[in-house]
Amino acid sequence: MAENYYVDSDLSKFPKITEFQKELGDKFFSWYSSVFAEGALTAREKSLIALAVSHAVQCPYCIDAYTQDTLQKGCTEEQMMEAVHVSAAIRGGASMVHGVQMMNKVKKISM
């Protein structure tokens, strides 16, 4: 067992996941590359979305990778932090909106 579950040098080993399942791994990386290419959204916009999602799924590898990537694409710290706030707002909002479910239930079972 490794001493730490997350090791930063493991990020550069990501492409090696194809060693155990080449066909699916190759398909994943090909699709991944297409997802982040310029399209209806710019690569820069996609990178900021990825940074926000990285925080939502709390993946340290993704946070490292997309912090670097957004900087490379010329994003400012303010833009990056706003993306993190978007992530936090959705996570927080997701909890809060369930308050309606709670209220519905309270109203149904209370006199």
Binding site: A43, R44, Q68, D69, L71, Q72, K73, G74
Partner: peptide, 20 residues
Amino acid sequence: VYNPVGCFLPGNQKSLEQEF
């Protein structure tokens, strides 16, 4: 001329040019 303000590589030149 753009060079990164830190220790990372420059992004895509065309995209950065559009943003600038």
